[in-house]
């Protein structure tokens, strides 16, 4: 524990003069100390470097998308190729041109109308929820709430997430916390977590957040190309005259 403390203080840059001497002695005399120092420093980076780990996840998703796109193209190419085998060379040449155009159109279609279409829809309609209205109307006044909303407004998502988790740990059915925590998850690209929380709000019902939860959940379904689920979420919002009515009609027309 003592070694941990002195290394962490060194990495924080908060060693006192006395501790600096101690630190130097450790470095000179303890052969394992250098290894520990490197391990502590790298472990800190592993804890703090969210951009690195988010990119790794995104790369996996890009790979899956690329594979889907490639397989779809090659399947269609194969089918077309078999069909044209019996034709003469001139026709085959024309067919090859046709195939190329078809593949390009298909690639375009896959790109703009599959996963990326979902991403585009999400990007076109997603705006960050402004907490001011809800904050006033619900008059949440405790410190944790105030801090959490402040962090949310300042876009400090990781910290806001910590505070919303604390609130939800003490009351997992707090729909306000579920909602903001869900939006925070979206900002942190934790989409499955966001979906769970927003769905929970709808399941609980009887809350001012249901309409908002439906809207954001529909956008998440769009992003994941689950068009049917997105429609189901939006349908109840069409008939009501609410803040989202216009956007809902516009989004539905594009699904």
């Amino acid at each position: 524990m003592k070694v941990t403390r002195i290394i962490e203080k060194y990495l924080d840059g908060t060693l006192s003069d006395e501790e600096k001497k101690e630190f130097t002695e450790y470095l000179e005399k303890d052969s394992e100390f250098k290894e520990l120092l490197q391990l502590h420093a790298e472990a800190n980076r592993a804890i703090g470097d969210d951009a690195f780990f988010i990119l790794k996840e995104k790369l996996n998703r890009a790979y899956q998308l690329y594979e889907t796109e490639s397989h779809s193209l090659s399947e269609i190419e194969n089918k077309l190729h078999k069909g044209f085998n019996k034709l003469n060379r001139r026709i085959l040449s024309l067919a090859a041109t046709f195939l190329l155009i078809t593949a390009s159109v298909l690639a375009w279609y896959l790109f703009y109308n599959s996963d990326t279409r979902g991403d585009k829809l999400f990007a076109d309609y997603y705006t960050l929820y402004d907490p001011d209205i809800i904050y006033r109307s619900f008059e949440k006044s405790n410190d944790t709430w105030q801090d959490a909303l402040l962090l949310y407004k300042e876009h400090k998502w990781q910290l806001a997430d910590s505070l919303f988790s604390i609130i939800l740990n003490s009351d997992s059915t707090d729909t306000a916390a579920l909602f903001y925590s869900g939006i925070t998850d979206i900002e942190l690209n934790q989409l499955e977590r966001a979906i769970d929380k927003l769905q929970k709000i709808i399941n609980i019902g009887d809350s001012g957040y249901v309409i908002h939860a439906r809207w954001y959940l529909a956008l998440l379904y769009c992003k994941q190309n689950e068009t049917d689920n997105a429609r189901k979420m939006l349908q109840p919002l069409v008939s009501e005259n609410n803040y989202y009515s216009k956007k809902v009609r516009s989004l539905l027309s594009r699904l």
Binding site: A51, A62, Y63, Y66, T116, D119
Partner: peptide, 13 residues
Amino acid sequence: LIEGREEILLELY
């Protein structure tokens, strides 16, 4: 890539 834009990652593939 630095911004983690998914369409760019797909383009790299």
